[in-house]
Write a protein that binds this DNA or RNA. Structure first.
Lengths: 195, 195
DNA sequence: GTCTATACACCGATAGAC
DNA sequence: GTCTATCGGTGTATAGAC
């Protein structure tokens, strides 16, 4: 492996780590398998990071927010509140179906963070909720509706649903059931606002 | 350690494994730490189980359903649909607050199963949904209401919410926010039936 | 600066003493 | 039947050659 800056090496290792976690799971993501995935020697890892733990910290901080924010909105245009919820959650389900390994990896990283890096987990979860909140406020402004419960509460409910949908679909891969549940959720959620 | 039947030994090891996972996480639950928790010698493990994997299979099969079913209903008596949802989810939140390590362990076992024992995960998730469904049908019979969407779909939505609530509260431990979200969820869910 | 070689701890699993 | 002792393998991390 040729000469790389520390920054390049770190990026390459973070990307390789995510690939390994997505394809084989977090327990399989040892330093050895990560450097193998990145095509580096074992020792070069500790030239870029002081420990495996440090790499996981960076991985969580860099991926969680960007990954999830990339998923949400799409464009907004004049539909009903029900349709906006249904399209938003339906779009997420399509993303999940297209790249299940990615969301599985996110879930494993969240689990690890809750256990071993609680502050980091909290921070990322907060960022995630703010994205949901911003989307909801955009929706409210667009459709001219008003929330009957505080918007942050609706945002949190949306996050609950998204996490639950992720686990549920990853477990049984029942897309039809997931779609029907999204439809019911959209119907229920849309009653939390008045036009 | 005195003489025990294989059955006793298996039970003791399963219980010890759950304790270790709850307190220190699944990655820490090696055969060595499990037998230490159970006060046994290392070799006695393989007298009761052929492998660590086999113990985890038994652990998942035995705990998942019983753990979650023990949480749900309580008694039902003449409240509105809204109140029944709110009390059901609120009761689960109280259980989560009282024993966060247990639900954290359940989540880690689910994650492990999804990755390494997909059939087992599916089976347990199905059992979990059936419990939710049975509860909903009991509720419908009690309140005399009728679901506007299929009951299994409502059950799945309830499972999504429970899983999302679990992750959310474990991450930020914000009980007030969780309670407010449960209230909103109950309000939204109760619109899925007519009296 | 980057590699190979290695130190040392812990893993799952088993052999063999008692 | 139950233990101690040990095997082969892998983990993280580092020393030392180049």
């Amino acid at each position: 492996m040729g000469r790389m800056s520390v920054g390049e090496r770190r990026s390459a290792l973070v990307a390789a780590a995510f690939t390994v976690i997505a394809t084989r799971g977090l327990p399989a993501a040892s330093i050895r398998t990560i450097v193998a995935e990145a095509g580096m020697s074992l020792a070069s890892f500790h030239y870029a990071f002081t420990s495996r733990e440090e790499l996981l910290d960076v991985l969580i901080a860099e991926t969680t927010a960007s990954e999830r924010s990339a998923v949400l909105p799409g464009q907004i245009s004049g539909h009903s509140l029900h349709d906006l919820f249904a399209e938003g959650l339906g779009g997420y389900l399509e993303h999940l179906r297209a790249r299940p390994e990615r969301e599985q990896a996110m879930l494993e990283l969240t689990q690890y963070a809750v256990r071993s890096r609680p502050d980091l987990a909290r921070e990322q979860y907060g960022a995630y909720q703010e994205i949901a909140l911003a989307t909801l406020e955009l929706v409210a402004a667009e459709t001219g509706c008003q929330w009957l419960v505080p918007a942050p509460t609706v945002a949190r409910l949306l996050v609950y649903l998204t996490d639950g949908l992720t686990i549920g679909w990853l477990v049984d891969r029942d897309t039809d059931a997931a779609r029907a549940t999204i439809e019911a959720a959209a119907r229920a959620l849309s009653t939390l606002a008045r036009t």
